[in-house]
Amino acid sequence: MKFGILINEGPYTHQASDSAYQFTKAALEKGHEIYRVFFYHDGVNNGTRLSVPPQDERNIQNNWTELAEQHDLDLVVCVAAAQRRGILDESEAKRAGKDADNIAPGFRISGLGQLIETGIESDRVVAFGD
């Protein structure tokens, strides 16, 4: 089956991103396809490379980045939600006149149309977050 994944909450405060990661990993191990993972609302905060959690804790951003590398996942952060919350890639940072960007490897910033497309192209969209 082809799954689309939607993550609506940021890391650590909510378990949503962890649950989505476990689900995505399990689905891939079972031979399912992940069409795209879309990060919305505070979920965009999963895509910063500047988080530094304690070393004996899971690193949620690293988990996603590594999973994306292993399985060629498409991790998309909503641009409008990201701009509000200070998640920027190089070109967005330049355009907004900011002195830094913080998007993590494996993530890309794009529009909400990517979420709609995920709904159209996937057999199921599974949303995480409350």
Partner: peptide, 19 residues
């Protein structure tokens, strides 16, 4: 919370997709 506003943003963008 921001959910209502950001939901509306999805609806407006999604309207372009003829669903």
């Amino acid at each position: 919370t921001i959910y209502a506003l950001e939901s509306l943003e999805v609806v407006l963008i999604g309207a372009a997709f003829d669903q």
